[in-house]
Design a protein around this nucleic acid. Structure first.
Lengths: 212, 212
DNA sequence: CGCGGAACTATACAAAGGTGTGGGTTCGAC
DNA sequence: GTCGAACCCACACCTTTGTATAGTTCCGCG
């Protein structure tokens, strides 16, 4: 192909590899490697640079050197988690040990590559990471959509929904909330409409995403 | 305490540590360690000995040396998985490397301890493994109970249940199965009785454990 | 102060779900 | 062949749920 070294068109959907390593030659080599498979890659010289510059909302994964200038890569992994960033992380290291790798994997890293490693090892790991990222994003999107719907419910409607997905009958709900059965029906109808479902079964599935 | 070196009474519910290591002195040291916290431990000199002798149905975890006489510990991990054994595994090794540890963790190991390690490291790992084992067993028990109930359903009843948890109305189910609505009600009633639920909401939750 | 949203209630009717009784067929096991 | 299980259907009756219409009260906001 003539455009073998051109990355695929960058939309919000095409995943990108964020490379965080303090060694410029390694960064360049990795960027070239990903160009060769037409995958966009952006490199950063340190954790702070990454946090300041990178688009954390984009699809993709992080290729992270364990030994970073300033911070430790493993601590950085925890830090990202606490920031709400769920991007899959692949560690690279030239001077790692077993406890390090175990800690990283326990914390959810996709892989932990000790140098020297083959290009294919990285590509395989990135492939797995992209796959994992897609799943996380799909789950998150579905969850977010339901949460948005749920936010349009009034307090009473939320209470009624909770009772309905527990399998209570209208009369039981009415007693529990101290209101008439008629009113329960009203709220219930509003819940079904606002949550965009047409059966209790659907409602139960959506409500489960909300932790009910 | 006077009975500090006596393991807790062994019932099916008290977890046991299965130690698999070819070094007798290590086995003895570990057994003593667990005796000191009144936890039952059984030791095995090899994978085959473990498979032949151990009660794989009991609650507990496996403390496994990576280097085993004959088989590799990592392969043994895979083998146990394929046998349907879900017991959490903690690896120990004197001569491990990073790829080994990563492979083990990817395959679901609870921990991977490189010698030398402190007694406390092992005890912590076992504590986590026991916790994980409990969760697995609870999940498995709940799932098994529902599966048992589902097996009492006739084919038609299963079809009706699948349609119900999809949120279809009786008339839709009737059309889909080419039977009358009244017959659907009949099957539906049988489903509710056999699955031991009194509402569609409950049925949906149970059915989800069956992969519907 | 008036307006609108939320919450509540009632009456009335329509649609869906649930149960019981009774009766039918087919098919495989004993 | 007889028996039981699975499957099917209908009539009758009741409960539960859903929807529409209409009106009340309360409260916050401009």
């Amino acid at each position: 192909m003539t455009d073998a070294r051109k990355p695929a068109k960058a939309t919000t959907d095409t995943p990108v590899v964020y490379i965080v390593d303090d060694d410029p030659s390694i960064r360049e080599a990795l960027v070239d490697l990903f160009l060769s498979i037409r995958t966009e890659a952006k490199s950063f010289e340190g954790a702070q640079h990454f946090l300041d510059t990178a688009d954390l909302g984009r699809a993709g994964c992080i290729l992270l050197d364990v030994r970073l200038p300033g911070a430790n890569g493993l601590d950085f992994q925890i830090h990202l988690e606490s920031l709400g960033n769920r991007m899959p992380i692949i560690f690279m290291t030239g001077h790692g040990d077993i406890p390090m790798s175990v800690r990283a994997m326990k914390a959810g890293a996709v892989d932990f590559l000790a140098k020297p490693f083959r290009d294919q090892d990285i590509l395989d790991a990135v492939s797995v990471a992209f796959q994992k990222d897609r799943q996380i994003r799909q789950q998150s999107a579905a969850n977010g959509a339901v949460t948005e719907l749920a936010k349009t419910l009034t307090r009473r409607e939320q209470e009624v929904m909770a009772a309905v997905v527990q399998g209570l009958m209208n009369k039981q709900i009415a007693f529990q909330l101290g209101i008439s059965e008629i009113t329960v029906k009203l709220h219930r109808g509003n819940v079904m409409r606002k949550m965009e479902v047409r059966s209790v079964a659907e409602l139960v599935r959506k409500a489960e995403l909300l932790g009910l």
